[in-house]
Design a protein around this nucleic acid. Structure first.
Length: 708
DNA sequence: TTTAGGG
DNA sequence: CCCTAAA
């Protein structure tokens, strides 16, 4: 039998499909179900419990904390930023060298707290983002961005300055990072004194006793973050994985294995299918909270407590809205229906969004609070830049601006702990894309204030002055057309937060430009050769390329924060007013060209399974590729077949090795002839494939493809 | 939910 | 990639 089967399949040594295609219902169950990995849960639980503790501890002051934390933060930031700007040149230099980033942005307006924050961002940008992201991934997350930012900065500094980076230290070991985090506040203050980031940072590091994070957090409310401490490796750490150190929580992020885990995770979550996340971008749902404030305010402590019980709580919530898994299937859902995608929306407050949309031409907020305005009105996207000016003579003179970077508003992303770095990147990418997808408006800030009157001249506005140039900033705001979907949360807190603390947005840690370097995910095993085993391993490759792509656009990633379930729910609420519906159609999934390795995997799977069984192909070769639905695979096959038939000159995009194309034709021919679709029986004659193929291609048997 | 195709 | 009709 065995022998026979092989013959039937004809292609290579591929194993015969183990599952001759049983009725869908059957297949589905069997294949898709997997047991969840307990260990993971444990991790979650641990995290949850930790989070719960922290929360409890801080809960009493929770409400106050939010504000306090920010304040503190802001203060610290100021210091920091100043330092950055003036003192820290070396730092910048490094950044550049490393290529990581855009740290170089100069913050202009220092007037308001917010502005400060911005600066912070700049600084932290580089690696911080990633690490941060990872960190946040943990369930514990809640908190204050500000705190994070600090820590990040701290870390960053440290790394730059001296510590090479210890990627993994376990929670308790005295890490620089921890120290920083724990005492970030103090540290910063010290810095102030010291007046030098690096110096300060180091100083801090030394100074801070290595305490148990928890303790620290207790001591310092804001530090709730402390959980997240991550030891940041030096920013440019070549090896991503290494770079992500883990948190005390010990979540495994960034491991290669993640894919696997991830998938499991998904499966797990599948159970909850019933509730699909309203919005989801790409693979995962990304949620943008209106403002950082939201979370601060909004988060319910209770949840965390629940979380202690284990992950479940999170998922459980899912009912309402979450579903981590089955991203791939999301596609199925009609996007339009989910206007919710709004969740993707940027940070603007639900409310704000409206307001924002309202004022296409003008920026909303009037707050003088300056920088706050940015974020505020902005809904979402606040970006800011720095303006430099070159000349500023008489009125006619031209004012030159150089925008080092735009800051994108906070993005909140929810990603399973088990998600891979690659998936994280993708997620962020998608979020960003979604964000940018719509029209964007640019706002001008001067001295932290928004300049509303479009009719005024630069000179009138004062932008032509050198002094002012330093204080000028640009913001990106969602364009009217694309206004982000509104998210209305019923919860008062959220709203409040929105209104109340515009500045928070800014305060949130800066997000630096992302640097790609850090991210690489798994190496892509270019498997041009068909080694049998590939199938399983294909997944990795897949992600890798994608990652690269993703990386490019990561820029604003800074605020990746896992949002507590609660928040999500709230956010999830579909906006009542959707004035701007554009969001609905808007999102088109981000384009992710198939990498050669993916193609290879696809080809192999099709050779084995035949066409017409895309779901199986998906399962077999792309199970872990959350994006890439069976429909995608089918489409890709279609294009591959087409590609194979046209002349190489006519082909576009990343060239697919001829070898693969030949296999595509062969398989296509074969399966066309054999109607694979019909129940699993594959007829003999497969062998002939080779011949057929040869005939078809003209290339002939020479092609190694099939042989065996 | 999957397949199969058109757009 | 998206959208849909069919199954």
């Amino acid at each position: 039998m065995v022998f026979k089967k092989r013959l039937d399949y004809g292609f290579n040594a591929f194993n015969v499909p183990k599952i001759p295609r049983a009725p869908r219902s059957t297949r589905r169950r069997g294949q898709s179900k997997r047991t969840v990995d307990d260990s993971q849960i444990c991790a979650f639980e641990l995290l949850a419990s930790l989070a719960g503790k922290l929360l409890q501890e801080s809960e009493s002051s929770a409400s106050s904390n939010a504000s306090e934390g920010h304040d503190h933060v802001s203060i610290g930031k100021d210091v920091v930023k100043q330092e950055i700007q003036y003192d820290d040149k070396p730092l910048k230099t490094e950044c550049f060298e490393q290529g990581s980033c855009e740290a170089s942005v100069v913050a202009s307006v220092s007037t308001t707290e917010n502005s400060d924050n911005l600066k912070e961002f700049t600084h932290a940008e580089n690696d911080a983002i990633l690490e941060r992201t990872l960190i946040k991934t943990q369930p514990a997350f809640l908190e204050q961005i500000g705190g994070d930012s600090k820590s990040v900065i701290c870390k960053g500094n440290v790394a730059y300055g001296n510590f090479p980076c210890n990627a993994n230290v376990d929670g308790y070991s005295p890490d620089i990072g921890e120290l920083c985090d724990g005492k970030s506040e103090n540290g910063f203050k010290q810095e102030q004194d010291a007046r030098g980031l690096e110096t300060g940072a180091l100083h801090i590091a030394n100074t801070c006793p290595s305490k148990d994070p928890v303790e620290l957090s207790m001591t310092f409310p804001p530090p709730i973050n402390s959980d997240r401490d991550v030891k940041l490796p030096s920013r440019r750490d070549p090896v991503p994985n290494a770079s992500f150190s883990r948190h005390r929580n010990d979540i495994k992020l960034g491991n290669r294995d993640d894919d696997e885990n991830f998938s499991r995770f998904n499966k797990l979550s599948n159970r909850f299918k019933a509730s699909r996340p309203p919005t989801r971008i790409g693979d995962r749902r990304i949620r943008k909270l209106l403002t950082s404030k939201y979370w601060k305010v909004a988060p319910k402590l209770n949840d965390f407590e629940n979380s202690r019980a284990g992950i479940k709580p999170l998922y459980r919530k899912r009912k309402t809205c979450y579903n981590y898994d089955r991203c791939q299937y999301d596609t199925l859902y009609k996007r339009r229906k989910f206007s919710d995608r709004s969740s993707i929306v940027t940070s603007d407050g639900g409310n704000s969004s409206e307001s924002v949309s309202n004022s296409p031409g003008k920026v909303m907020n009037g707050d003088k609070s300056s920088s706050a305005a940015l974020s505020h009105g902005g809904c979402g996207v606040s970006s800011f830049l720095t303006g430099h000016q070159a000349s500023h003579p008489p009125k006619d003179s031209h004012v030159k601006f150089s925008i080092k970077s735009f800051r994108i508003p906070e993005l909140y992303v929810e990603v399973p702990e088990t998600a891979t770095v690659g998936s994280l990147k993708r997620t962020v990418m998608e979020a960003v894309t979604a964000l940018l997808g719509g029209g964007i408006r640019v706002g001008v800030l001067l001295q932290g204030k928004k300049v509303r009157d479009d009719s005024r001249t630069l000179s009138q506005t004062g932008i032509s002055c050198e002094d002012n140039l330093d204080a000028i900033g640009f913001t990106l705001e969602p364009g009217p057309a694309k206004a982000p979907p509104l998210v209305c949360s019923e919860e008062p807190p959220l709203l409040l937060s929105c209104d109340a603390a515009p500045q928070n947005l800014i305060s949130s840690p800066a997000t630096p430009a992302v640097d790609t370097g850090i991210l690489d995910a798994s190496p892509d095993p270019p498997s041009l050769t068909n080694s049998a085993n590939h199938v399983d391993s294909n997944n990795e490759p897949v992600s890798s390329q994608t990652d690269m792509l993703t990386d490019q656009s990561l820029p604003q990633s800074r605020a990746l924060v896992p949002v507590p379930a609660m928040n999500v729910e709230a956010l999830a609420v579909v906006p009542v007013n959707q004035k701007s519906r554009k969001s609905e159609l808007a999102h088109r999934r981000t384009r992710r060209p198939f990498s050669v390795s993916e193609v290879e995997a696809l080809v192999q799977a099709v050779e084995e399974l035949g066409t017409g069984r895309w779901r199986d192909v998906k399962l077999r070769a792309f199970e872990n590729a959350e994006h890439r639905t069976y429909v995608d695979l089918k489409d890709k096959w279609k294009t591959l077949v087409h590609t194979a038939k046209i002349s190489p000159q006519q082909r576009r995009g990343e060239p697919v090795p001829q070898e693969l194309l030949d296999r595509v034709l062969a398989a296509h021919a074969y399966w066309s002839q054999h109607q694979a679709k019909q129940q699993g029986k594959h007829h003999a004659g497969t062998l002939r494939l080779t011949d057929a193929q040869a005939d078809r291609n003209g290339v002939a048997a020479a092609i190694p493809t099939v042989m065996m």
